[in-house]
Amino acid sequence: MLVLGIETSCDETGVALYESSAGLLSHTLYSQVDIHADYGGVVPELASRDHVRKTLPLIAEVLADAGVRRNQIEGVAYTSGPGLVGALLVGAAIGRSLAWALEIPAVPVHHMEGHLLAPMLEDDCPEFPFIALLVSGGHTQLVEVSGVGRYRLLGESLDDAAGEAFDKTAKMLGLPYPGGPELARVAAQGDPGRFRFPRPMTDRPGLDFSFSGLKTFALNTMHKELPDHHTLDEQQVMQTRADIARAFEDAVVDTLVIKCRRAVRESGCKRLVLAGGVSANRQLREKIQQTLKREGGRAYYPRPAFCTDNGAMIAYAGWQRLKAGQHEPLRFNAQPRWQLGDLSAVRA
């Protein structure tokens, strides 16, 4: 079955073609990061406006790249939530009506299910069940995945998502938008021994997270070390910023690793999947891999392009549901607060 996947939940337009026997045929992504950079964050209305301009040209691009005619598509999958309602509606409207015109089924896909199943696009993919850590600008969740649609939320962030804390702290440090990856770059120059930030909620049982306190801790450290009338030279200021970035990154990564280890031990499942934008963070990848090795298991991650938002994971998750006979009637919807737990299981 040849499935077209469309992702428009936030500030990236992703389109892909997945074929059930041949695998991924083509995928492409357009990032709106330059559009939102001047505003210091995603402007929902501008995001929606750009998706309307980009989605069809990207669909045409993947068809041409894969050498496929539009009437060979057998199913359409689009992200229906969670995400920005206006942005979601664009992909849903185009995807649903394209399927109607081609007289093929369409299926709405849960964005996080896309991320959970993204490692299945790789040759070396995990078997079910596995534990997944979803870390992005919008989510920090630990989920037990025992099959397609069989998800159990083990823990999540009670306040900021890890990626959000990265971005906000980066902004405080005066780093350019989007700050997360930039903070990690600066942190690489930092001295890991100079500051030590707390590892929130690791001293009590449970798998929930809290990252907003770390952001405040970083701010307080900055005010103390770099007051308005300091006498440090430029080099010292840069180094202090790098040291704060390093302490912050180490704290976030350690916290995530500690909770992952706890989830692996409590569940007895030794396969761990890292997904979401923050899973591109190198420190996190390395430490998770070392930890899982020590636990006698291993970590899996999608290639970096499929850690962040993309159309390939939507095409894949959509195919899983289409082949199980699921499809959307002749309407479409954005579900900005769709819960992972509301999904139905798919028979293997």
């Binding site: 309307v52 206006g86 509606l89 409207a93 185009i94 995807g95 009506s97 394209l98 399927a99």
Partner: peptide, 17 residues
């Protein structure tokens, strides 16, 4: 804005298909 984009998206998808 949303209403206009619903019509646009629906027509884009149908016309492309």
């Amino acid at each position: 804005f949303t209403g206009v984009r619903i019509a646009t998206g629906v027509i884009q998808g149908a016309a492309f298909g």
